[in-house]
Design a protein around this nucleic acid. Structure first.
Lengths: 345, 345
DNA sequence: TTGAAAGCGCTAACAC
DNA sequence: GTGTTAGCGCTTTCAA
């Protein structure tokens, strides 16, 4: 390639990288030769001498799933803009596999590592004394000094409750996932606290179960069967909320007229397919990924930001809470979903 | 590191790679020194001299989505086992971005490239005359000589229809996605053909719409309103099927007793949350990814397998078709979902 | 059995 | 303005 343009390799390098000063015509000639040959500088050779690979590793501790994907996409987005390439590593919930990936990444001399996963529960650091910066995204490390970018779930729960209060609901129930699950606990406690701040409490004891529609349906049935008087349900997930919606409708309750509903996750396909479309708390997982990537880049450039960083949630209002003032009984608004076969009403 | 073990770099290299012959004690000494120092050979240096990076690129032509993810995971799985690392590139439906990624991958000297995406529709080759092997996974290239691993959707449709026939249904309707969408067309045509083979035809003209629950609900309503006589619906997707299920139930039809339902995709969360749980066609996307990775590895090793390779589907039977012999009217089996609030029946 | 040296492809420092 | 050279970290060949 240098030969084709009849210059030395050094000159060719400078020409292609816009470094040094040289006759414009030479630069042009080199560029054309490179173009003609489809020449592309070898990243390996380059990083060998630069001591930097412009490469980062992304490890999921558990399998890649619904939550880690948006995080990864956000990170990839931010990283790609900075011309960094991303190594994908699916930990598959297997510590051995995880450590193997870590070794691989280290021998590939990645400039940094992003660790992500499914649950908010803190996990032990991926390894002590790593020679490169690590940022935890969505999950956190048990070491509070490790850099992690987290969702402020308390903020999400607060916004959910405040939204329900704002549309005039006062008798709010809560249906969520497993009680021992940190997200369920945080959301419940925070919601209760916010209610207390308004001089209220849950309209029924909070109900814990699975993160599934089936559980939501079941819980709705139980709430009704136990004769609780409630005009809203704050649900721990969109799937649960959707189950609750179906359960309520099957029992003849109208959403949002009789009972308003707020979910959590803002999982588009769930929230939109719900009847009626579901108001939900969005954790902005892509934003989490992007923020994590930005912090990693900063750390790589010598500006680390140790500690836990919480990001706010955003409430996305849809028709499951679309009542500003409670209508007089009997004044039911038109059903929202034009395409839907009419529910029995 | 060589210094710590008091050997030359050449010896150290041999010791660590198990190459050459040497005093076992020396080998041991080197290994311990390496261990102590956390030494890991630089992949960059290694591939510089080997001319091979043990790295492949994975590009999605459109955004990374529900279909490409399992494909990617399957590929990553197969590749990881072969100690290859994977570069993740999200094309975001942007040709510029895609070409940029391609350049990056090429300059990183990946050993091969996997291209994947959302739709079955063939796409133009990602670039002509690439210096490394390329395998298309789930999508195919318009050039029939390019290696692509594809889902045999006709097989899936056939299995769906045969399953319905096997449980004694004869009046089968079809509700699917957009008519111009290749998957919708293939599935419909094949199903019609298989019915014809049994001397039957669709119980109603096939209905095309969106890949959404709302459309499914709507279509169910229309089918009923038009007075069609049908005892099964083969749906183009799980979401549509779920909408149909809801639409039928809202109109008082029982699934599977009155109408059996088969979906497509076997999207667990949809299929399981459906009432009743949905029988569906599984495209084994992870298998597609694994197969693509295996073919890429073979091509890298000089054994290319040009052309389109189709993989069969698998039917996953659940309760939406759980009737072997049609029960006498009135002999309704117990509702399947113990957790669910009872639908009105 | 071990060491020395060349060379993979590139960039940066320096000489011409 | 351009060419030469050293050296990034490794493997491999060949000599000792």
């Amino acid at each position: 390639m240098a030969a084709l343009a009849a210059v030395s390799v050094g000159t060719a390098s400078k020409a292609l990288n816009g470094r040094g000063s040289m006759r414009p015509e030479t630069r042009q000639r080199v560029r054309e030769a490179a173009e003609r040959l489809g020449f592309r500088a070898s990243a390996a050779a380059r990083s060998l001498q630069a001591g930097r690979t412009y490469t980062v590793g992304m490890i999921t501790t558990d399998s890649i799933g619904r939550f880690s994907i948006p995080v990864m996409l956000g990170a990839e987005d931010s990283l790609g803009a900075g011309r960094m390439s991303v190594f994908l590593c699916d930990g598959r919930d297997d510590p051995i596999r995880e450590q193997y990936y870590l070794d691989t990444l280290l021998s590939r001399r990645v400039d940094g590592i992003i660790v992500t996963g499914r649950r908010a529960q803190p996990r032990p650091p991926v390894r002590a004394n790593l020679p490169v910066p690590v940022v935890y995204a969505f999950i956190s490390s048990t070491d509070p000094d490790d850099c992690s970018v987290l969702v402020d779930e308390a903020d999400g729960a607060t916004k959910a409750v405040e939204h329900l209060l704002a549309i005039g609901r006062r008798r709010i129930a809560h249906v969520s996932g497993p009680e021992h699950h940190q997200s369920a606990a945080t959301r419940c406690t925070t919601a209760a606290g916010r209610l207390a701040g308004a001089g209220l409490e849950f309209a029924a004891p909070p109900m814990f179960g699975e993160w599934s529609e089936a559980w939501g349906r079941h819980a709705a049935g139980t709430l009704l069967a136990n004769g609780h008087d409630f005009d809203a349900v704050f649900c721990g997930s969109d799937q649960i909320a959707r189950g609750v919606a179906d359960g309520l409708r099957a029992a003849g309750r109208r959403v949002p007229d009789d009972v308003a509903l707020v979910g959590f996750d803002n999982w588009d396909v769930m929230a939109m397919a719900c009847q009626p479309p579901l108001t939900s708390v969005d954790m902005d997982l892509e934003g989490v990924g992007r923020a994590a990537a930005d912090m990693l880049l900063a750390a790589i450039n010598g500006q680390p930001a140790p500690g836990r960083h919480y990001r706010p949630c955003r409430l996305v209002a849809r028709e499951s809470t679309a009542v500003t003032v409670r209508p007089a009984p009997g004044t039911a608004p038109a059903p929202p979903d034009r395409l839907a076969a009419q529910p029995r009403t």
